[in-house]
Simulated scan of single mutants.
Amino acid sequence: MEKKKLISILFAGLLFFTFIIGYNIGLNKESKIKKDTKDKKQQLNLDVSVGKIRDKKILNKIVSKDAEIIFEMECTNESKYMIERRKKAEDEGIVGKKGIELEKIYKKAGYVVKEINDNKVEMIRGTLKYKPNSYILMTENNEIIIAHSDKNGSVFDSEGNILDRQGTGTFLESLRAEDISNIINGHESIQYATNTELNDSIKDFDIKYEIPE
């Protein structure tokens, strides 16, 4: 009788142990599936934002000391891009780096490499979406400008022109590092519901400009 009881206990323990192992394997497999799905979605979004103009060979090219790095944003659905900012590769600290390294560095802001040659490094990204019907601080050719988003959160019209563009005469590099990052990444702190909010805020950026009421 005692022997049967012992066997029953051992059998129950074995079943429990088997269940725990199976459960953990299932969790790990589910976690891996979710991660792979997320990675695929991120890659899909990346590919969609830049169309079919990328050349994978570019990722192995190395940035020249004499090159200029140019950051561009897509402003229409027809692969038309606006230059946001430009800088010497040496000043940006990317000389000697490969294209694949650049994509890791600028991944947060959504940039991918379009071109690398002796004279330039071209980084492109899809159009940023902002809060609808808001005043936006963004950068065009190194200058801080004020734009206005439409009901869909876009700052471009169908022809790729910036909506209600107002120049400020202030350059991006004159701002604090945190402010530069917020403008580049389209942070909500640089999006304003009214021109009053905008005017009050840009004083903190030391931008000598005020949009008319």
Results as ranks from 00 to 15, higher is better:
L44Y: 08
R54P: 01
A193H: 11
P132T: 02
E140V: 08
E122R: 14
E90H: 01
E178D: 13
N28K: 11
N141C: 07
H187S: 09
M73F: 03
Y106W: 15
I145C: 15
I7V: 11
I62A: 09
K35N: 08
L128N: 13
I207D: 02
A12T: 15
H187Y: 11
K151V: 14
L6W: 05
G167Q: 15
E143V: 06
K35L: 10
I9V: 15
E173Q: 09
I70Q: 01
K108V: 12
G26T: 09
N119G: 05
K61R: 14
D47N: 09
E74M: 11
Y81R: 14
S174H: 06
N161K: 15
R165N: 14
D150I: 07
K120Y: 13
L15I: 12
E140D: 02
G169M: 15
Y209R: 09
R86P: 00
K5R: 04
K32M: 07
Q42V: 07
I69F: 10
E84F: 02
I70A: 02
E213T: 04
I211Q: 04
G126Y: 03
P212T: 09
A67E: 02
K5M: 05
Y209V: 13
P212N: 08
I25R: 15
T168K: 04
T196F: 10
G96C: 03
I202W: 08
K57N: 14
S134P: 14
V155W: 06
I9L: 06
D150C: 03
S189L: 00
K3P: 00
T170V: 15
D164V: 09
L163H: 15
T168N: 12
G51F: 10
H148F: 05
K104E: 04
K61F: 08
L102C: 11
S189V: 10
I180C: 08
K88F: 12
I183W: 02
N152Q: 10
A109S: 12
E92A: 15
G126L: 00
Y106E: 04
T170C: 02
I9P: 00
F11Y: 13
V95L: 02
E72I: 02
E159Y: 11
C75D: 01
K88M: 14
S201P: 09
S189R: 03
I146Q: 07
I136H: 01
G169L: 14
I21M: 09
I124E: 04
G110Q: 03
E78V: 10
V48D: 10
K129S: 08
G96R: 02
I58T: 13
